[in-house]
Design a protein around this nucleic acid. Structure first.
Lengths: 213, 213
DNA sequence: TTAAAAAAGGGGAAAAACCCCCTTAAGAAT
DNA sequence: ATTCTTAAGGGGGTTTTTCCCCTTTTTTAA
């Protein structure tokens, strides 16, 4: 059986090296190189020999995160299979990652033999999905379709300001809008996101990665 | 040179196994076993043969976290050296961990040879501190001494409720206090934590791990 | 091109949050 | 025994937030 080339994209050095060690211990798989973020990866991929079969991709990274990077890969290198690897159990994130084109989503507490299975299945079947992730997805579908809430750029900007000690009047100034318009934004979002007050908005923003702590 | 026994306490399976692989690849170190949280560790330690030289301890874990566990070890097993291993760069957390008795604090993006050095130094010198962590600590000292803010149990309870969509009146009911007393709690905390409003309180709580998202 | 939808702005009132300054009771400090 | 501190409770007032319902202008889609 042919040996498959793997690339690891992960910003934490130790993890990156530790996972590399693990993958190298598997039969038929070898880690060609590791990258610390999406930007580094894209630069590397410009050289033909650097194109791997599978990329193990972290989701939360600085500079160019896993979702954005996977999105780009889908168009530029459709043959590379991306397996997401993250601690993030948030439905919204998982959905975004899969929409971006990931062939699977592994939580970082999987057993190492599952990782090996996932790699093998991804090569042979083209995808691999764990029970865990399937359950989370199904849950999010049955619960409500809140994942389909679309926020406009201006709303996202507003929400970010909301996660600060500014009053709405101050936010209005920052956004060059009248306080009354801001009132409208807020009331709209309360309804759309099913929250009761500004605290709810802040919590929503943090849970959904709009505002990073 | 004698081979030293290492134990890894880390809730994420894959990481745990990957780091174990790494440590086993070092000369003079062998991983005896791994645990998923502090509780599991304490149970294991009851057997004499299970007592290691160094414990590599994650900070954020369910059930019994790294800080609490290290605190307990300090009293029960003062000879075991604890090295903290975390992604958490937050000063407050680092300080808490070191206060609890950790002999060093490694960020998860260290190079693997640093991990080896850290293990060696911890055995021979009794401690190991990276530049990174020292810098963070010194920064936090020079910036302000906000890390010395002490919160009472009741205040922490209050702050947690603050991170919800409840009104202060509702919080008062939950805590069996009059709304006016709650007013006092709030005003006090605003001053103590140097924040301007409830949003500031929520942000503080999240940044300092009082409220987990 | 015309109808519909979205964005921006607004009035007015009620509720919640915020601010400052005060009292009482209970413990700790000395 | 007396001062100090802390927790709990409170008065009264200002500002901000929240809510509901409305108009005008700009964009978008059929």
């Amino acid at each position: 059986m042919k040996t498959h080339n793997i690339v690891i994209v992960e910003d934490h050095n130790l993890l990156s090296q530790a996972i590399a060690g693990l993958v190298n211990s598997f039969e038929n798989f070898v880690v060609r190189y590791t990258c610390k973020n999406g930007k580094e990866l894209l630069t590397k991929l410009k050289t033909q020999e650097n194109i791997p079969d599978v990329i193990l991709m972290d989701v939360n990274m600085p500079i160019l995160n896993g979702i954005e990077t996977t999105e780009i890969l889908k168009h530029e290198y459709p043959n590379i299979k991306v397996l997401a690897l993250s601690v993030e159990e948030n439905e919204a994130t998982i959905i975004k990652m899969l929409k971006a084109g990931a062939k699977g989503y592994l939580l970082k507490d999987v057993e190492k033999n599952i990782l090996e299975t996932a790699l093998n299945e991804t090569i042979t079947q083209g995808y691999y999905h764990t029970k865990d992730v399937s359950n989370i997805l199904i849950n999010s579908l049955t619960e409500d379709n809140s994942s389909s809430v679309k926020l406009k750029d201006r709303e996202i900007e507003f929400i970010k300001y909301t996660c600060s000690e500014m009053t709405y009047k101050e936010i209005a100034e920052k956004m060059f809008l009248s306080p009354k318009t801001i009132d409208g934004y807020r009331d709209n979002l309360f309804q759309k996101l099913k929250v009761k007050n500004r605290i709810g908005l802040v919590l929503y923003a943090i849970k959904n990665g709009i505002y990073k702590v």
